[in-house]
């Protein structure tokens, strides 16, 4: 496996001609026309542009106030920060943790600026029972989701006043997550795609939340709600090792600031086959196993 990675690495210099200023060793993925700035960098001295998020005007010049990527929409220039809290969009799949059980709603931590809200009216009750609005079902909310529980959900709406996210779990895909690992990565690394629920070829299930929260589970059977109800699910040693490998693959990608989606995870997972799970934590190992994912992210593959 590592030989293929090396071969790919050897052909890299030819391909770099398409990128602007990238060296192959840098962890930042640059693309043609993409500009990376640090706080205080001059973005433009041209007066014709408008100041967007992440920028400020000083001495008539437009400077960056955060580290990130310059984006321009018509005359508005903004900088999209690399490290930031999650900015939600309607339809995003998120992984969240219940922080508080409130009145007819749960407060959920989704790494966004404010706690997100999951209303009692936007969940499916276990077993698909229809909810009857009554005082008693408000009292049994904790049986559905308690503090600390991890859930997968979808962003249903964004409150106009303060940007709070309103979530829903009205689909069989969403709901409480069973035994597994939770990890967090910078939210910008998770690419928005059609599907955020993956069962990798190795049999491990991952939920890649758009908010940078990731859940790794033993398996995701067809009827996920059913599978998640089985809390006593026995996980074999073999599966556990596979899950650890997936976890380390994802954290290696996050360490190199590479996009995290199914293909990069599979690449890193496969390229680590010659290593033991715990050996993947070493910095030298991270560089080797993520090489193919790096080339993919820089369009060199």
């Amino acid at each position: 496996m590592d030989t293929t990675a090396d071969d790919a690495g050897a052909t890299a210099p030819d391909a770099t001609t398409t990128t602007t200023t990238t060296t192959t060793t840098t962890t930042i993925v640059e693309r043609p026309g993409m500009r990376i700035v640090c706080p205080g960098d001059v973005i433009t001295e041209d007066q014709g542009y408008m100041r967007g998020h992440g920028t400020f005007i000083h001495d008539g010049r437009l400077l960056a106030s955060v580290a990130g990527v310059v984006e321009r929409v018509n005359k508005v220039i903004s900088v999209r920060p690399v490290r930031t809290r999650y900015v939600g969009e309607i339809g995003d799949v998120v992984v969240g943790r219940i922080m508080q059980v409130g009145q007819r709603r749960w407060l959920v931590d989704t790494q966004s600026r404010l706690s997100s809200v999951l209303k009692l009216s936007s969940v499916n009750l276990p077993g698909g029972v229809l909810r009857r609005k009554s005082a008693s079902d408000e009292l049994t909310m904790r049986q559905v989701l308690a503090e600390g529980d991890l859930i997968s959900a979808e962003v249903q709406a964004i409150f106009q006043e303060d940007g709070t996210l309103s979530l829903h779990t009205r689909s069989l895909r969403y709901g409480r997550l069973g035994p597994g690992m939770f990890m967090r990565v910078p939210s910008v690394l998770v690419r928005r795609s059609k599907n955020h629920f993956h069962t990798l070829p190795c049999g491990v299930a991952v939920v890649l939340g758009n908010n940078g929260y990731i859940w790794i589970g033993a398996s995701m059977e067809e009827d996920t709600t059913q599978a998640r109800e089985h809390d006593q699910h026995i996980i074999t040693e073999e599966t556990r090792r596979r899950m650890a490998r997936v976890r380390n693959a994802i954290s290696a990608l996050a360490h190199r600031m590479l996009s995290i989606f199914d293909t990069t995870i599979i690449f890193t997972y496969d390229d680590s086959a010659h290593l033991e799970e715990k050996e993947m934590l070493h910095p030298e190992a991270i560089a080797t196993i993520t090489q193919r994912a790096y080339l993919l992210c820089t369009d060199q593959l």
Binding site: P179, M181, N248, E277
Partner: peptide, 21 residues
């Protein structure tokens, strides 16, 4: 969550931790 606690406790008992150590 309860599920996470159980997962980690079982892992510790089996001598395989979350990151394979």
């Amino acid at each position: 969550s309860k599920a996470e606690r159980q997962f980690i406790a079982n892992g510790i008992a089996a001598n395989i931790r979350c990151d394979g150590r």
